[in-house]
């Protein structure tokens, strides 16, 4: 029976590893390759840790299996009268197996600081590249205006989005911290330019939510009382899943929305489209000038 148990404990890590190896092929893995430069760095970090932990996992489980088999064979009849190895430990071993993991862990700790800083520390935001976007979409902005192109307000159970409106001369206004009469509104449908870092201001109207873009590996809680800037960069012009990742009430699972990354022109056209819809008065012969208040 003891051999069965030895095999049992040796068997399951093999199953675990086989399952993990099969996972990507069966689509049991990341929802697609990360669609942003930051996301790819996060993935790289994930794979690096995966390698380190896999090696450790295999190593420790192998040793565990080995000592079990050794224990099982040492208790076979014939050797039964001898005692176990009398040892209170080994100072040398303790030092080795404390310092080696310590070095590895410190390496992991410091290796990732860059990615974290780029994602969260505001001074490290790619401000220049963001400003290039404003340039391209003709945003009329002062130096201190928000870098954000939209304000996303989470509420139970949807995402309300506010974009700045247009000036009379056709330039895009800057996003103001508070609603403006010319602002454009959308719900559950966030459109922003692709292939460039774009920033949104995240807030919540009621309880805590979390803005989760799995394909971009972006997640940020929307905390009551705070306005949190987050930036991301989508490589491809397509639609991405947006959902809530922090329990926000009974309808937590319902906050299904999308983030559409598109070209600068399409983005402006989308805002124009919103503007037209928002000014719909159902009179066909309306003069074009009634778009502004």
């Amino acid at each position: 029976m003891k051999w069965f148990w030895c095999l049992f404990f040796a068997f399951w890590p093999i199953v675990a590893i086989v399952v993990c190896l099969l996972a990507p092929g069966n689509n049991w893995w990341f929802p697609g390759e990360a669609a942003s430069p930051l996301g790819r760095r996060i993935d790289d970090l994930f794979y690096m840790i995966l390698w380190i932990t896999s090696i450790t996992f295999v190593g420790t489980q192998l040793v565990l299996a080995y000592v079990l088999f050794k224990g099982a064979s040492d208790t076979e009849p014939g050797t039964a009268n001898e005692k176990a190895w009398f040892s209170h430990g080994s100072h040398k071993l303790e030092v080795i197996w404390s310092s080696v993991p310590a070095v590895i862990l410190l390496f992991i700790a410091f290796y990732q600081l860059d990615v974290w800083a780029e994602y969260r520390v505001k001074d490290a935001f790619p401000r220049k590249r963001m400003e290039a976007v404003f340039e391209r979409i003709h945003q009329d902005r002062q130096k201190n205006d928000s870098l954000a192109l939209a304000e996303v307000t989470a509420r139970q159970f949807e995402w309300r989005i506010r974009y700045p409106g247009f000036n009379a001369d056709g330039t895009l206004k800057a996003l103001m911290p508070d609603p403006q009469p010319t602002d454009l509104y959308a719900v559950n449908d966030l459109h922003l330019p692709a292939s460039a870092p774009v920033m949104i201001n995240l807030r919540t109207q009621d309880v805590q939510h979390s803005f989760f873009l799995p394909e971009l590996r972006i997640k940020q809680d929307a905390v009551p009382g705070l306005v949190i800037p987050i930036w991301f960069e989508a490589d491809q012009q397509r639609s991405y899943q947006l959902l809530c990742a922090e329990l926000c009430g009974w309808g937590h699972y319902k906050m299904n929305a999308r983030f559409v990354a598109e070209s600068d022109e399409q983005f402006i056209e989308y805002l124009r489209q919103l503007e037209r819809e928002q000014n719909e008065d159902r009179v066909d012969d309306a003069p074009d000038t009634d778009e502004e208040e």
Binding site: K122, D123, L226, V227
Partner: peptide
Amino acid sequence: NPVKDANTAS
């Protein structure tokens, strides 16, 4: 809707 800035802002 008085809001405070997130700590992230410099």
